[in-house]
Design a protein around this nucleic acid. Sequence first.
DNA 1: CACGTTCTAGAATATTCGCAC
DNA 2: TGTGCGAATATTCTAGAACGT
Lengths: 140, 140, 140
Amino acid sequence: MDNSKENLILQQQSSIPSFLTKTYDILENSNYSDIIQWNQDGKAFIIKKPYEFAKKILPKYFKHNNYTSFIRQLNIYDFHKIKNELGKHEFKHNFFQKEKKHLLCEIKRKSIEQQEQLEENNQIQSQYKINLYQPIIIHN
Amino acid sequence: MDNSKENLILQQQSSIPSFLTKTYDILENSNYSDIIQWNQDGKAFIIKKPYEFAKKILPKYFKHNNYTSFIRQLNIYDFHKIKNELGKHEFKHNFFQKEKKHLLCEIKRKSIEQQEQLEENNQIQSQYKINLYQPIIIHN
Amino acid sequence: MDNSKENLILQQQSSIPSFLTKTYDILENSNYSDIIQWNQDGKAFIIKKPYEFAKKILPKYFKHNNYTSFIRQLNIYDFHKIKNELGKHEFKHNFFQKEKKHLLCEIKRKSIEQQEQLEENNQIQSQYKINLYQPIIIHN
DNA sequence: CACGTTCTAGAATATTCGCAC
DNA sequence: TGTGCGAATATTCTAGAACGT
């Protein structure tokens, strides 16, 4: 059997936005642990070096190297910044936890106020929603 | 007199999407004339080598190197493909012409169907909504 | 005559927000020219090294070292980012120019525009509409 | 009260994918 | 690689809102 086709079907069924899977992948990469890492209990993550995160890691996964664009996406998916010591960049979402990748499918875009209305009208199509984004990384 | 208000209006008018100015810039670059070029009468342009256009030129101006994404943008702005000899990639918009960059501001996005509805619903608020999104574009 | 005293009085009377004067002072400091600097024609400024700007310069003038907080202030005062090459941080306000510090008093908070418009809708108050945030300034 | 700082959201354009014709 | 479009996510620039001084 063609594995690529099988994976394609899996991707279709899960339909998890690439922002979530990519961010999760970054956190699973132990090479980045000095820049970005899960917190102690694994229920949030800390960007320990925002500048290096933006310049070194972001362009490998996304089409930009802007820290603020990454933060905008976090807020779109309803992550929240945790208030703690000065200058600590810690973010949390109840369905974004270490060793619990299966919860990612529960995370929804926030601006669903309009989308919910549309989905109620188009319940059939929502089953076939597909995310086949393939990152094309352009370095300069 | 209040110049700031006047300038604000000017800025609104000058809000030309970067897709249009970038595509125009590409056509003005004579180094690319063997890949993409204005046609004879200057009222359309021809992508003579789509593959090289996608891989060499697109990533210098956009965040991707996909020919189809470029074509999607052309369609969004209501460009049309000209049917002619086999395999000729020629596109046209009445306000996209050689030596007439000042016409770019007349080109509008096509998917205004939704925008029109939103505007109808927000007639009151529309008084307070100002499009400040497009800053002045300065090329070197 | 004591110029310093005169300038002090002028500053008090004009009540220019400290954000504007501090940002202007930063740009007048030639020691920072490799981090932040006026552009060629002096009608905009470029933050050449955002990270160093945030960490080295901002805390000397403000109560934080966050680049985004500085950008938020720029937008509040109606500065606009100029679109140009990727990663270039250039900002402009028509009344924020090199060698023209006397124009700073013309820069107003953006959020006042909405208040003005709201007042215009309240026809009763509109008769008495006065810009209370800009005291009378006497030049020369 | 105006201003400053922080966190989040609005709005427009950009990119991708699949479908209808 | 037929052509154009709808829809979803992504990226960017600007603004809203809360809170403190």
